[in-house]
Amino acid sequence: MLQINQVSITFGGLKALENVSFKVPDNSITALIGPNGAGKTTLFNIITGFLKNNTGQIEFENDDITNLPPYKIFEKGIARTFQNLNVIKELSLPENLLLGIIGKDKPSALKSMLRLNSSYWNSVTERINECMVLTGIQEWQNKKVNEMPYGILKNLEMARAILSYPKLLLLDEPAAGLNNNEKEILIELVTKLKNRGITIFMVEHDMNFVSTLADNVVCLNYGRVIAKGTYQEIRNNSEVIKAYLGDTDA
């Protein structure tokens, strides 16, 4: 589904990513792991058009999406969440969710203002309600966004991404800052999304979370892929152990 080919990027003299290549298979959960500063979020930002890579190519469903702007990437069917929340505080919870739909459907401004085409708008309301139930945020729909707890805001961001019916969903540290109970709920939700046919590609530090969900794991260190395979394979890889624990020979 997603193919990263020899992607490199430098910031000044710093090589943030160097010849990174791997595949995210269709209908799978792939985790991107690595120590802080390994280049994980940089790669997410390149895939979603927020950064331009110096060399290399990114293909999505055999389509070259390298350096397309974020809204074009979104239109191709790639949605994402952020490590630092990107919920729009100016909009209400349902309006935030609506943004995920109108960004994709692009309904006419006049028709939306006058609520012409009522069957479409009824279906939009249904989709929003269904998604609120799926992500467990329905009780918060009348609350102000800036009064919501962190876990709910993370789910809101996820719900907004899901509403665009993405083919590929990028989750940047989805479990960060969540308690064990919230993580259990999130595992259930991500599994449901995979069962609905959405391919998941996530950056995550929580190895329990990764081991429970991921079909494939890619490990980055200093901007280079040092290992890829199943969680079991990665766990026993000496390069990965060295990257996380340091050189134990010393």
Binding site: Y71, F74, I88, E90, L91, L99, S164
Partner: peptide
């Protein structure tokens, strides 16, 4: 009320979040 107006308001508040929701 309009969908485009909401896209404007999203851009006012957070251009990055707006663009990831398909807003040009």
């Amino acid at each position: 009320k309009s969908s485009l107006g909401k896209a404007f308001r999203a851009c006012y508040n957070d251009k990055m979040a707006a663009s990831i929701c398909g807003v040009d």
